[in-house]
Each structure stands twice: as C-alpha cells, then as structure tokens.
Computed example of a mutant assay.
Amino acid sequence: MRRTGTTRRGALTTTGALALGAVLTGCGGGDDAAGSGKPAHAAARAERALREKAVRDGGLLLARYDLVAEAHPATAAGLAPLRAAVGEHGKALAPPGAKGPADGAGKSPSAAPVPVPAGPEAAVRELAAAERRRADAYTEALLTAGPELARLLASVAAAAAAHAFLLTGLAEEAAA
C-alpha cells in the first residue's frame, strides 16, 4: 500500500529546490535600472576603499607579529608561517594596480607601536585577539562587498579565525 502525505524525501527535495531557487535569484546581475553606471562606480570606489583598509590593517598586524617575534624570540618559529600567510592575504586583498609593498616584506606602516607584553604567553594571546578582530571585521564586510571580494574576504576571515585558534594553542605552549 502506498503512503500518502508528505514524506521525508519529498520534504527534502522541496527544501532543496527552494534553496536553489533562492540562491539563483540572489546571484542575478548587479546592473542598475537607469543604466547610468553611477551605482557601479560608487560600488567600485567602496570596494577599493575596503581593499585599501584591509591592506593597511594587515600591515599593522604584520608589524605586531614582528614586534612579538623580536621581543620573544622563542615564539618566532611558531609565528613565522602565520605572519607569512598574513602577508599573502595583503597581496590578495590589494586593490588592482596598487603600488607599494603589500606583502609585508618592506617597511611596516607607520603607526604608534603597540607595547608588547613582557610575557610570551600574553603577547601571543594579544596576537590571537587581533586575528579574531580581523576575522570579525572581514565577516562584517561581507555584507557590503561585491561577490568576488566577498569570496576573498570569507577566505581571509576563515584563515584569520584559524590563526586565532593556532595562536591560542601557541600561547598555551609558551606558558608551559
């Protein structure tokens, strides 16, 4: 005898079809109705500003990594791969055609140096907190970014969250 009514398979199929429809609807073109190009120009300016801020913030984070590694040489080996990744994020986030060192290989941005805590554990924990703030900021920026930049910001936010996790573990090792 055949069952009547809603089955689990039918409900899942319907839910999947609705989700796919919502995704496809949200991925429509971003053309403005008037055809003036002004909204597209404003969006390009906003994206460039977002990229420039991300590169500046990444440069400041690179400087913090350098200060911690310099103040606590025992942590330098653990920090090196994470610092290198932050430099790569700076390259990826740099606006197209941007000039200057986006990889952190050059001079760090001139900002008031943040005092490094005396203990390696506290210094690494501060780096972890900075990475968490970076992940949160990039996640928030996803709301206003265009599709390409949003994918990049999501990747960098995930990497920053992973860095925070790894730095927390490194801080615990430094305490031991």
Rank of each mutant, 00 (worst) to 15 (best):
L82D: 15
D31V: 08
G100N: 05
T25L: 04
A111F: 07
A141R: 01
G30L: 09
P81V: 09
G58M: 08
A43V: 01
A141L: 04
E70D: 15
A43N: 09
T75H: 13
G37F: 01
G104P: 11
A11P: 02
V68N: 08
A80K: 05
V124T: 13
E131G: 14
E173H: 06
T4H: 06
E47Q: 08
E173D: 03
G21N: 05
L170D: 13
L153I: 03
D103V: 06
A157H: 02
A145M: 01
S108H: 12
K91A: 10
A54F: 06
P95C: 02
A46V: 04
H89W: 10
A112E: 14
V55H: 01
G29Y: 06
L142N: 06
A11E: 08
S155E: 10
E88D: 14
V55K: 02
L93Y: 07
D31I: 10
T139I: 00
T7E: 03
P109Q: 05
V114Q: 13
L152W: 01
V156L: 12
A80C: 12
R56Y: 02
A11T: 12
A49K: 09
A158G: 13
G59E: 04
T25Y: 02
G104F: 03
P120W: 01
G169T: 02
L62C: 07
L61Q: 11
L60Y: 07
A111K: 10
G146K: 00
A102K: 06
L170N: 06
G146I: 00
R48S: 15
G104V: 04
S36K: 06
A80G: 07
L149K: 06
A46L: 03
A44I: 08
D32A: 08
A141P: 03
H41G: 13
A102S: 07
A175K: 04
E52D: 14
A85T: 14
E52R: 08
L149H: 10
L62Y: 06
S108R: 15
G104S: 06
P120V: 10
A42T: 10
A164F: 10
S155V: 03
T7R: 00
R56Q: 14
R132D: 15
A19Y: 00
L67N: 14
A175Y: 01
A76L: 07
G35F: 02
G26I: 00
G59W: 01
